[in-house]
Every structure is written in C-alpha cells, then in structure tokens.
Nucleic acid binder design. Structure first.
Lengths: 123, 123
DNA sequence: AATTTATGTTTACATGCGTAAACTATAGAA
DNA sequence: TTCTATAGTTTACGCATGTAAACATAAATT
C-alpha cells in the first residue's frame, strides 16, 4: 500500500535523521504542519502497518527507523507521474517545464553538466 | 478540488477528442479499465461538480467537453511532485532518473536538442 | 397506449486519509 | 503505595475515491 502525503512528511523527518522518537518527530513537524501528538502517532502506526518504518523499544518509548528508502519512494512517485502523464519518458517532462518557463538558469546549467557527464561515461 | 486518478483517465479521453458522450467514453475506457456504465457516469458527474468538464445537451444525451486543459492538469501534477520531492527544481529530478538508468538514448538526444534550442533562443 | 430501451440522477458502500480524542499501561514522584 | 506524567494503542469521524446498483425519465418500439 502506498505511503500517503501526510505519511511522507513523517518519512522525510526520518530520512533526514533516524532513529527518532515520536516526540522528536512531533517537535520537528508539528508546528509547521499544525499537527498534534495524536496525529503523528497515527501516522507512525500506519507507517508501521505498511512496513515503511520499524520501531525499536528504547526504555519506555520507541525509536522509529525507515524501512522504505527515500530513493525508492522518490522512484515510485516519479515513475508513477512519468507513466501517467508523459508516457514514461523523461524528455517530454523536461520539455513541459521548459515550455512553462520553469527551467531556471541553474537547472539548465546542471542539465548540461549532467548530459556531458553521460557522454563522458559512454564515449 | 483535485481531479483524481480515475477521473483523469476519463479526462484523457476527452483531451484526446471532445465533445464525447458518456457512451463513447465508456466504449473507450471501459474494457481497458474494467469499468461499467455506472462508474463512468459517476466519474463524469464528479468532474462536472469539479468544473473540470462541461456538458451540453445533444438530443437525449449530453456531450462532455473538458474545461480543465491537459496542460494545466499536467502542470499542477508535475509541480506538485517537483515541489514535494525535488525542492521545486527540475535538474535534480532528471538526475534522479539518470541515476536510476531511466534515461533512454532517445531521452538523452532530445534533452540535448532541447538545451541547444534554449541556447539559441537566448544567446 | 403500454412496454422496452437509453440516459441521466441519486444513493450506496467499502476503503483510505487527515485529523485527532479517548483509553491503557507503566515508570517515576510524592 | 498511590498518584501522575508519559508514551503507545484503540476508536472515531468527516470527506474523497473507486466502484457501482437503483431509480427516474423520456424516447422509441410494439
């Protein structure tokens, strides 16, 4: 089952640093998201059920660690979008952003560099 | 309110050719999706409520036409993903696909062409 | 005119999600 | 030892979604 958007926000905290306690996670996302204790606890439980995180007892509480890697999550999400909207191909996606003028100078520079590196790999 | 995934499949039919009747839409997506009549009708009604399509009476039935453009929809979806996962920037997204070896030869060629065109626009 | 057929409209129902309150258990504090 | 603070577990509730069935209505057919 898929990790939902709210759950992904909790995952981001754990991807950034793990293991963390529920309390630490709350401290990190609660204020920004306007979430209470119960909300974070529910999300953690759903993530446990989905096997996206694991919990290890540490004293009276649990410390949570990701089982699903950010890379894997990002891959799934990106591939989903690509397949649904761009027939699974990357160039049309970039072309879309280009048409929308959403490519920054920095993006363009980085893309050039990336392509050059690909050339160097496979001459 | 957002157009859901199932709704987007109906939209794709209309983006491809509109106006279309419910019957035509069913004929086009029903078999592939395993959807019955009622399902397509429900989706069309939700799309109407969301103002993503409009309906014009034609004889005893309605013909549906998109109000939301595919371009706008694609933009929203893409921007959402980009913001959530790549800090709003395109280059890291492409880098991700590159790392996952998801860039085809064709993608690479097209990206090069695209970047060259951008150069030519703004010399 | 009565019945069947084609369409659209209303209602349904399980599941997931966002958001939590209520409940429970347990380790410290008094 | 009893009370309290803390952390996890259970239950809740409204809304969206996927997936229709049931119902209403009007046109076409018998």
């Amino acid at each position: 089952m898929a990790v939902s958007e709210a759950e992904a926000i909790v995952m981001e905290v754990l991807w950034h640093a793990a293991p963390r306690s529920a309390e630490e996670i709350l401290a990190e996302v609660g204020p920004a998201q306007g979430w209470r204790e119960g909300t974070v606890k529910s999300l953690l439980n759903r993530l446990l059920k989905k096997k996206a995180v694991k919990a290890e007892k540490e004293g009276r509480r649990y410390l949570y660690t990701p089982l699903l890697s950010r890379d894997k999550y990002v891959s799934q999400e990106s591939k989903g979008l690509l397949d649904r909207l761009f027939d699974g191909r990357v160039a049309p996606l970039v072309a879309h952003f280009s048409e929308q003028r959403k490519l920054s100078k920095k993006d363009i520079a980085e893309l050039k560099k990336l392509l050059k590196e690909l050339d160097d790999e496979q001459p």
